[in-house]
Amino acid sequence: MSTPAAGSGSPAPSAATVDRPGVINARPVRHPWRWVAIAVILVLVAMMISSLVTNPKWDFGFAFQIMQQTPVLEGLWKGTIFGTIASMILGVGLGVVLAVMRLSDNPVLRAVAFAYTWFFRAMPRYVLLAILGSLGFLYAQIRFGVPFGQQIASSLGLSTDLTFFGFSWNDISSTIWVGVIGLGLSEAAYMAEIARAGILSVDKGQDEAARALGMSSGQRMRRIVLPQAMRVIVPPTGNETIAMVKDTSLLTAVPVLTELYYQAYLFGQRGFKIIPGFVAATLWYLIICSILMVGQSYLEKYFGRGFGAIPKKTKEKLMKIEADH
């Protein structure tokens, strides 16, 4: 059509000069305040760098030395990294169990899960670790056996106390394991809430479809609901893991001293240069957390399969099948 519709406001151009509007090449909106903000930030960054370079008390050379000391590295591996991994395994495992209990039909399980979450969320980690470290004052011996075994045995006049095995709490009270138990139990309370939110986020129709196929409640949870819940569970769990890396510095409360922060601090103190000790610990924490963030993004991609963007591998498979036809 070369003639515009009748009644349009503009005067109708003659057929020969009609030129329909083409590609838009408009001037963008100007943002002068962005340039002001950039200038301010640049000045602040320059001031910061200048202070880092000119103030000799930072002493980065010494900080790098501290980072490489054997006790610091040992604290990093055996305390911070091992502590994080072990506590998170315990926390995630127990947390998922608690979440499933919390959502079960069984009122006893629901109440237990609720009470657990209530207690361990209210308990500061530092205090919990200190209590576990001192548990030996309350219970010197930990025994596993028949409940009330000692009382039963004495009333029946038996020679044994019905204990299968036991150990002295003080033998383990300053080991990383006590720290792992404390941090893991505390983490489970938070993970329980995260896992519960994840499970509730899965459409009810998924469980029904699995039910209609004759799957048992365990199969439905393991194979259908949890894998989909992971999409919601993984991002906050990454958050929790990164928080856990830093919370391992609380292990000194047990006291577990083979731990990154304390060891780095000790070196700074011994050299009468306390700041480089803090810098060394900070740099290690930054490195670990950066690595964890990369790992998290991979996990998110894996559990996001079937949602949103198509994974590359599936795309290749699909193209191959189409080519075969």
Binding site: A209, A212, L213, M215, Q228, F307
Partner: peptide, 22 residues
């Protein structure tokens, strides 16, 4: 009850396919 359901197939209004599986 799960065993009784095995022999009865069901198709839902909203499909309810498992989105994380091919």
């Amino acid at each position: 009850i799960a065993a009784q359901r095995r022999d009865i197939g069901m198709v839902f209004q909203r499909f309810n396919l498992f989105p994380h599986k091919t």
